[in-house]
Amino acid sequence: MGRVGIVLISHSTKIVEGIKELIREVIADVPIELAGGTEEGEIGTSIDKIVNAIKTADEGKGVVLFYDIGSAKMNAEIAIEMDEKSTTKIVDAPLVEGSYVAAVESGMGKNLLEVYEAVKKSF
């Protein structure tokens, strides 16, 4: 079975691209999907992008979501409500460090709850 997936949500495409780059330096085999910016690539967040990112990141072990400010979390919540699956968890943690910790934990083969708890405990 696969790894717990990670979705990075930010108002800016560059922020999430940068974080993914940072994590990929150390972790290669954990799914990381990006939902940065609006549909038009402008500053903002998009529910559709988040929904698609969750779908792609899910290898069957669930997905953790990290977000930056304001509408990012609200849109993450709507995306999860629309999905109706409970295998996605929003993590209230700093976007960069939080997702980094999650990637390391997921890379060790931890399950969704373990990854979630490990991140929560770190902050």
Partner: peptide
């Protein structure tokens, strides 16, 4: 509104 607004007002007015 939810999918097109972009800012916090999108999910809020959408909801």
């Amino acid at each position: 509104l939810m999918s097109k607004v972009g800012g916090a007002s999108g999910p809020l007015f959408g909801t």
